[in-house]
Amino acid sequence: MLPEIVRPVDLCLPSGALNPAALGWSRRALHRANLRTVPLSSRAATWSRTKRREHWGINTPDLLIALTVNSLNYAAAHQVWILDRSDGTVIEESAIVPLARHVELPETAFGGPVRALTRDLAIAVDTEDGSTRLRARTPRVRLDLHVPIPPESLGVVIPWSDRQFQYTLKSSALPVSGRLEIDDADTTVGPEAWANVDHGRGRWPYSTVYTSAVASGSVAGVRTGLHLGGLWTEGTGSTENALIIDSRVHYLPEETVWTLDADSPTGTWSIEGDRVEATLEPFHHGSTSTNLGIVATTTTGVCGTWRGWAADDDGGRHRLDGLVGWAEFTSNRW
């Protein structure tokens, strides 16, 4: 059984290798991703493998919103993405920045400012008085939201080896409020709005394939969040799976089995494990592909409504029916 970490810990040893004491999972942001600690002799190899990511997703009764700041060191990839659930219209502003210029990402989740700045896109994430402030600007969008810092989140290290590993912190079903302006039309966000966060820091293999899913909302008055992933964690002894009930994290250490039709806009995605049976019924399907030779990414994803159940640490089953979220299948050469 993967140990629960209860004290702050460095992700890396002074050599740049994975710190054995960092292996495990936590309920709070206890890992410090000291990824810059790399000896000169191996710096070139680890520099290109080091990845830092900050992703926020928000769902409201009318919209799905995603903000992404992603540094690969040799480049950065940022995005502001909004889906109008009524008609399927998507507003998207993406940017690729050589050498990850004008990017700021802290070593600890909720531990400092996040910044991405390009000519047509700006994202800022700040911690203020126990909450996280999310701001974004594009030619069509202005966004200013507040999300309380969760009392519990799932933090876990995925170890491929002592030189390649990933720390991720995830939380969902977080209440969110604020303002959103699209094409000069001002909208109030909340109270029926929910946020999720995906904070990642690590050193990845060149080629990876993974699945990921999230659900957020309220079921019969119970604030419920779910995080599921697969493929990339197989054989590591760790998973990124968790059920969150009224801010309490219930870690799901077992691997899950995914059944999906990545090419079908309407096909359901099903995920099963010892403590979860979840099905996502899509209301939006999308795919993206980038091929720059040695660097290539293909992602197929769906946004939709969940049904099914997941079990807490005591075996009690919690319904997922009506939760909103997404799932994706990604193949990377990076």
Rank of each mutant, 00 (worst) to 15 (best):
310 A>D: 11
297 T>Q: 05
321 D>E: 15
317 R>Q: 13
316 G>M: 15
327 A>H: 13
325 G>K: 13
327 A>L: 10
318 H>G: 05
325 G>Y: 13
290 T>P: 00
329 F>A: 07
324 V>G: 13
327 A>S: 15
300 T>M: 15
294 I>H: 04
320 L>I: 09
331 S>L: 04
301 G>W: 10
320 L>K: 12
314 D>L: 08
325 G>H: 13
305 T>A: 14
298 T>V: 02
294 I>P: 04
296 A>K: 00
299 T>V: 07
325 G>F: 13
301 G>C: 14
309 W>K: 02
331 S>F: 03
315 G>H: 15
319 R>N: 05
329 F>Y: 07
328 E>T: 03
303 C>E: 13
287 S>C: 04
307 R>M: 09
315 G>K: 14
311 A>H: 06
303 C>A: 15
311 A>N: 06
323 L>T: 08
332 N>E: 03
331 S>M: 05
317 R>N: 13
321 D>Q: 13
295 V>C: 02
327 A>T: 14
310 A>L: 10
326 W>Q: 07
317 R>F: 10
289 S>H: 01
301 G>A: 15
298 T>K: 02
293 G>E: 10
314 D>S: 11
290 T>K: 01
320 L>D: 14
298 T>A: 05
317 R>T: 10
312 D>F: 08
323 L>I: 05
313 D>C: 09
289 S>R: 04
310 A>G: 11
314 D>A: 11
330 T>Y: 01
317 R>Y: 11
325 G>W: 12
329 F>E: 05
306 W>P: 10
326 W>D: 07
290 T>L: 04
324 V>P: 11
298 T>W: 00
289 S>P: 02
323 L>F: 11
308 G>K: 06
296 A>Y: 01
300 T>G: 12
307 R>L: 09
309 W>R: 00
311 A>Y: 07
315 G>Q: 15
300 T>N: 12
316 G>C: 15
319 R>F: 03
316 G>F: 14
328 E>G: 05
331 S>A: 10
297 T>W: 00
